[in-house]
Nucleic acid binder design. Structure first.
Lengths: 334, 334
DNA sequence: TTGAAAGCGCTACCAA
DNA sequence: TTGGTAGCGCTTTCAA
């Protein structure tokens, strides 16, 4: 049978209260008793039951992480960085992939609430924030990462999507491109990136070459989406000479479409991506892309939610990180 | 405050025992009382406290998943497939990346045991199985995936690594290659793959061209390892015309090294990878690789561990899946 | 068919 | 400095 605090108490000849106290370093305990208790714990190979203490209202030391898709490199890298930081701080994370589906979000939030996670980190791309508000009303700590809700007061670590789009456009404009299309999916961050992109274009009296082609269904596989959208663009006469893809996967799909159409990247078509995931550097040509500081984001968002637990932060804090352009070989002078 | 079973009981004018019974569909309950209880639950928005019932010895509906690195595409895809199946079955998984470090494994196993996970799935590449044996002795269900322990009785879903290596070799031999090197890291599965590879070579009176160059330190970034090892091979005079890399990341690193050395893949050097992760098809050239049925593996291992929970499987079961060669464009006739 | 009561392992409060 | 004890929210006999 599992060894409990009672067994330790008996072995050490003290009460369970004392054992509990030494474990939690509370109250003042005599040095010898403390030692005796530790010895007993060692002896019996005692492992505290987190479940029981959670029932007493203590933390479960577990955080729920909702992301769209764990198999997507951006999110798996982000999850990894969150995981690392959480372990450093003594927490575990349970990951749920929502595939951008609200019913899954609902289901997972419910499940995790039952399990009394200490808080939620959302990296999910859902549009509604009613669920978030609900959790906040219940005083469950939440933090959002890689996803902005403007005009809404939450703890969030975001990058400046608008600026990301803006610098992508500037890069392309500098290279002399005038006809540029955009490949995106219909989620908030992409819309912001496009807004920034557009503004940069306008500043130079340019505009997006072909109508933006949002894909209604946010299909699971962004690469396929990128390929399909790019194919359509490429068939137009007077086609664009450059494309801005709102994430790396989309960009890679676009490059594949270009290759298939017999075009050379970047000679015949420049492509800039977004995210700077690990795959950006392994594709051919290596992707010029707007970099999100994934490691930092993961770390920051964990630190943020922890500070909420500790009550160190009263108000809702928004940490905005800056994207940077990483120039590789998928873009060139016109 | 949180609404408890007591609140529901009061609202429905029954005892908590009755409420508990209707929740768990146990005992025989009158139709009207059952309805009354459900109404009360609805009314009060009751959510059962999993923590409390776990304390009574019931399942936590949570499974620990130990993998080497969540940011590695093979493992993130595997984790995703396990996650999907776990959610279908009403479980959550908590993921821990071990980086192949035993101290991390120890730490995470300890943490998860304290949290009373219902079982463990190991995809980790650790060499020692003392931890596994320990858990088995404590009657904690475990299952292993993508990692074989020969001569050891555990629940496991594996692919035939030996066979994978064998078919990789046969493919290269068919293409007329005679001088072939191997890029690997020093973990069990890689050794098995090499063993199969070697045997296939021997059958054709061939042998590995350059000495196998295990990297002592299993560095985090396999791509770098692949690049470094391949660089060394490529500098040798009378260099190999083909390489077998024991995973896709290694293969991609090798291809990068070849490109850097001014070699064309596959014209000057054929490379075959292992795993068939998503990135295999997006690199250039698309990778010829030995495919592991990742989706299936995830599903099978979940089903396996669940069947252990249910006591449906008494003995330790080993499910062996078959690798297949996916021919793309990184290999060609000599 | 229902309910009273005894825990599960732990923390927190108050007494000693 | 230590210990007794009342719960936390639930499940599970055993009686009623």
């Amino acid at each position: 049978m599992k060894v409990t605090i009672y067994d330790v108490a008996k072995e050490a000849n003290v009460s369970i209260a004392t054992v509990s106290n030494v474990i939690n370093k509370k109250g003042r305990i005599g040095e010898k008793t403390r030692k005796r208790v530790f010895e007993a714990m060692e002896e019996l190979n005692y492992e505290p039951n987190v479940i029981a203490s959670a029932l007493m209202g203590k933390q479960t030391k577990t955080i729920g992480l909702l992301i769209p898709d764990l198999a997507n490199p951006f999110f798996s890298e982000l999850a990894r960085s969150i995981e690392d930081r959480s372990h450093e701080l003594g927490y575990n994370i349970v990951i749920c992939s929502t595939d951008y589906q609200e019913d899954k979000e609902d289901k997972y939030i419910g499940l995790l609430k039952q399990k009394r996670v200490d808080g939620f980190i959302f990296a999910s791309g859902f549009e509604k924030l009613s669920r978030v508000e609900e959790l906040m009303k219940e005083d469950i700590p939440i933090a959002i990462v890689a996803r902005d809700y403007p005009n809404f007061s939450v703890n969030a670590v975001v990058i400046d999507d608008y600026m990301g789009g803006y610098i992508a456009a500037e890069h392309l404009i500098e290279k002399g491109h005038k006809k540029i299309s955009v490949v995106a999916v219909d989620i908030y961050s992409n819309r912001e990136r496009i807004r920034g992109f557009n503004d940069a274009l306008s500043k130079h009296h340019l505009q997006i070459a072909q109508e933006i082609d949002f894909i209604g269904e946010i299909e699971k596989n962004h690469m396929d989406v990128g390929r399909k959208v790019a194919e359509r663009y490429l068939q137009c006469e007077d086609r664009a000479t450059a494309m801005f893809a709102c994430n790396d996967l989309l960009a890679i799909g676009a490059i594949q479409a270009a290759k298939q159409a017999g075009l050379k990247v970047p000679k015949d078509l420049s492509v800039v991506g977004f995210d700077n995931t690990n795959i950006a550097s392994i594709v051919d040509p290596p992707l010029t892309t707007v970099s999100q500081p994934i490691q930092l984001m993961g770390r920051e968002v964990m630190d943020l939610i922890i500070s909420v637990f500790k009550g160190e932060r009263e108000d809702n804090v928004r940490v905005t990180l800056t994207p940077t352009l990483v120039e590789r070989e998928s873009t060139s002078e016109l």
